[in-house]
Design a protein around this nucleic acid. Structure first.
Lengths: 368, 368
DNA sequence: CATCCCCGTTGCAACGCTTCAATCGAGGCC
DNA sequence: GGCCTCGATTGAAGCGTTGCAACGGGGATG
């Protein structure tokens, strides 16, 4: 077919397409009313479907002039390749599934962001699902994503028992990677954050700013991360030859709980008994600072340094911006994706349990 | 085939499958190493692939005994239907795409939750994508979801200009529904929340508790929702024959901004000039309350009532739990899905712009 | 006992795409 | 000038599933 001819046919088809979509060449007969397929593009460009496919997937094999012609046809017809058909041939999609257990928690949002970035660099995309920490929904999404033949699955689970259930039930063929849960049993890769190190970091920071009489405000020790953070604080203090002046475990770890603890602690702080507080969450820390601010005679950070945990918005958006331990959420997501791809590309892959370290973010509440 | 025979073949195949996966009957030759297809199940159950398909999709057509046999085979082989093949035949998937502009904002998380619930009831599922409000990412996800032939697209956009871009560029065939953005141009369905009504509601609540000297604390009027809330406050006051004692527009609407406003307002409140504050966000309100709590002689809610907006965690998790205007995020998501399905089922569908009303949540900060 | 009917089951084609071997044509080389 | 090479293009097969028309057999009916 010569160039003049092809241009003419482009024009003709263009007009046709504009006046009546239903008469477009090669319109599908059943199912999708979608209309435009690779065959239509091929016809319009005056090439075979294979060539169109090559333009899309192996453009180095195609002559420049052809590429141009095909791309014009694609544009004209508004052709969008059918992902289902692609995945069917390929045997899997170009997506990774990510099941999040709590979208309300910014750590998980960070994880998602990191995973998306890493996936992007590898030409993959991330499909998010929100389980709200409910086993039943985790299950459903794992199944759904398995059916859609994702490349692999990233799972954030709060509860170790869920992990056993899911692992037992899942029929996922590709990699299954656990995020934010450390499990070294060699059946899966896991990526988690070292809460013990985080606790130690927080205490060490207060020590480094000259505080010696520290209190730890935790929460119910049934929360494993909290227990780990407490252990880290103890370790850091011990290695400086010290021990916590007070360890307090409020019922929960919200701002209101922190406020109550703050009221309780205020007299001891005013008395100089305590000059540093490590709180197991930013909300807790924010509540403590708020209570202290309402107590005449106590100034943060002059009289007492307070450090939180999580790098919540609450940590910076406050009259006295909070120092905090930041969890590397994005890195967690990124690492997850990298491991996933590594595992899916390499059959000899050995599962590993990666631990990431948190970092201290210094703001006003621990200044000296 | 008689029953005895079929049971025997089940057993035989079971053994075979266990000892060597690669010799499973009808294993695929190219592409997916996935292995088990509908053909394998059929062979093992001693029926045709069509029958297996019927068990999966039209079980009322299949004899009870057959169902049981097929299900056992499915279980034995760990068969998972291939979603790509299904979508290919159907012409579209059983998913709805939801592009969120800010996962950090709990309103959007609520929207997602509502959408998931509604989709669930209709046997559909929701695929989440997080654009972080960036046009480039909105674009990519719209394309990605279009390629995967979702049933339709739910889009939350902050910016009206993005909406025009996306609308122009999108090749999505199914419905495209805009959430949290009111646009009555008849090209799309939209679902939004009436911020003007919310503002009016907040003011009316303070009036109803006997306050008469109200201040409105907004933010930059370039934010349309804020401007609308302010307008609502004005209207409610006007219809009571009143006007705002003060209108303040801090630079932004975070807790720190609220704290500054609170310091500024404290003298006027102490002087009895102001007895009620409507804040355009909960963070703002929380900051204000916090500043007032630090001012001797001012008590919330006795001396001044404060109401926020958004029903953030910040609203309840505070020493003085905040009254607030709750946005019906879940309802928004639900309505979006319903409209989407309605539009996709009914070709004669007329686009509509639905507005939902917020509600007041009364807590301690406006008690009387 | 023959006929009809209906339930349960089946074979075939099609969904839209990619891959791979085969083909074509234009130069380059001897 | 004939032959070979190599890049560009193509036709056919196949991915795993579903829908549909057709089929077979057993029970009810006359």
């Amino acid at each position: 077919m010569d160039k003049v001819g092809s241009v003419a046919s482009l024009q003709a088809a263009y007009t046709r397409g504009m006046t009546s979509a239903t008469t477009a060449p090669g319109a599908t007969k059943r199912g999708a009313v979608d209309g435009v397929g690779i065959t239509d593009v091929a016809a319009l460009a005056g090439v075979s479907p294979s060539t169109v496919s090559n333009v899309l997937n192996h453009r180095e094999r195609v002559a420049a002039a052809t590429i141009e012609r095909v791309e014009r046809a694609i544009e004209l017809l508004g052709y969008v390749p059918n992902g289902a058909a692609r995945s069917l041939v390929a045997g899997h999609s170009r997506s990774i599934g990510l099941v999040l257990s709590d979208l309300g928690n910014s750590l998980f949002v960070d994880i998602a962001r990191g995973a998306e970035r890493a996936a992007d660099e590898l030409g993959l995309s991330v499909v998010l699902a929100n389980s709200d920490g409910r086993l039943e929904r985790e299950d459903r999404y794992v199944e759904l994503l398995t059916e859609s033949r994702v490349r692999g699955l990233l799972l954030t689970l709060n509860d170790e028992s869920h992990f056993r259930e899911i692992a037992a039930r899942s029929r996922q063929r590709g990699p299954l990677i656990l995020l934010n849960l450390h499990a070294d049993d060699g059946r899966f890769c896991t990526v988690s954050i070292d809460n013990e190190a985080g606790g130690a970091l927080a205490a060490a920071h207060l020590l480094a700013t000259g505080r010696r009489r520290l209190a730890f405000v935790g929460g119910p020790d049934s929360l494993q991360p909290i227990a780990d953070r407490r252990a880290g604080v103890r370790r850091a203090l011990a290695s400086a030859g010290l021990a916590a002046v007070a360890e307090i475990g409020p019922e929960w770890i919200n701002r209101a709980d922190g406020w109550q603890v703050g009221r309780m602690l205020a007299p001891r702080i005013a008395a100089g008994e305590i000059d540093g507080v490590v709180a197991a969450s930013d909300l807790l820390a924010a509540g403590i600072v708020q209570a202290l601010a309402e107590t005449p005679g106590i100034r943060v950070p002059e009289d007492v340094g307070v450090i939180g945990y999580d790098n919540n918005q609450a940590a910076w958006d406050a009259p006295v911006p909070l120092s905090t331990v930041a969890q590397p959420g994005e890195a967690l997501g990124e690492t997850g994706v990298r491991l996933l791809v590594a595992e899916s590309d390499d059959p000899t892959h050995r599962h590993q349990a990666v631990r990431l370290d948190p970092t201290v973010v210094v703001r006003r509440s621990t200044e000296r």
